[in-house]
């Protein structure tokens, strides 16, 4: 994810991720809209094809922030901090997407937009922690102290990701448990729906890889301008 020299333009791999992601996005949409409805929820279940990839990217992006924050603390290389920053920003956007689509899904199925049940509460805390990450970055003038403090939040804040993911199993909740359960490997989904969901997860992941490389480069250009 990192380059030794600092180029002015995104490299070929970044363009491949972005191009492929944007190209396949309509295909994902087509698959989502042609997937069969659910027996109980009808066509409402299709919000899933946006909601689940959004949440997945949030978790993934915060994990990358965690990883690069650790790297930064050990190596003290500002490039690692820039990747952590880029990933946290993208994670916040996609976690926000998951929260909004989740609310739109909750109203017609559960009956309310929001309720303080464990999955929603832990995810709201997760979201707030990464909002705090950017508040902190904005509040500290000294670049080195800023990077260190941000790395600490990037590492400690990540604990919320497994808590949010496992919340539906650890506590009594209104939110259903995982349909693709990574802890047991069980899948409770029609094959046609699973196909559409996995494809959208793949497309979103491609986009994430493109975004994070692009945003890291922007951060590098910003830093260079600041120094000059």
């Amino acid at each position: 994810m990192l380059k030794v020299a600092q180029p002015d333009r995104p490299d070929a791999l970044t363009w491949v991720f972005l191009g492929l992601g944007l190209l396949l996005l309509p295909v994902g949409l087509y698959l989502a809209l042609s997937a069969p409805p659910d027996v109980n929820q009808g066509y409402l279940a299709r919000i899933m094809y946006l909601h689940v990839p959004g949440a997945w990217l949030g978790y993934l992006a915060f994990f990358v922030t965690f990883l690069y924050s650790l790297l930064y603390l050990f190596r003290q290389d500002p490039r690692h901090d820039r990747v952590a920053l880029a990933s946290a920003e993208i994670g916040l956007v996609f976690m926000g997407l998951a929260l909004v689509t989740g609310m739109l899904w909750a109203r017609p199925t559960w009956g309310v937009y929001w309720t303080w049940e464990p999955r929603l509460t832990t995810t709201a805390i997760l979201f707030a922690v990464y909002v705090g990450y950017f508040l902190l970055r904005g509040a500290i003038e000294d670049p080195e102290l800023r990077r260190k403090a941000a790395a600490a939040v990037g590492i400690l804040g990540f604990i919320n990701v497994p808590i949010s993911y496992m919340s539906v199993k650890w506590w009594r909740s209104l939110h259903q448990t995982q349909s693709i359960d990574l802890t047991t490997g069980k899948i409770h989904m029609d094959p046609a729906m699973l196909q559409a969901l996995l494809f959208n997860l793949f497309v979103f992941t491609l986009l994430y890889l493109g975004f994070v490389r692009f945003r890291s480069l922007l951060a590098a250009l910003e830093a260079r301008k600041e120094e000059a």
Binding site: P36, P37, D38, V39, N40, Q41, G42, Y43, A45, M48, T109, W110, G111, V112, T115, L174, Q176, T177, Q178, S179, H188, M189, D190, A192, M193
Partner: peptide, 22 residues
């Protein structure tokens, strides 16, 4: 306030469920 829980299992209907039927 009445909240309805739904399961994590998603199934396609056995037959039909075309837009007209919905």
């Amino acid at each position: 306030n009445l909240l309805v829980k739904h399961s994590e299992a998603y199934q396609a209907p056995k037959a039909g469920w075309t837009p007209e039927e919905v």
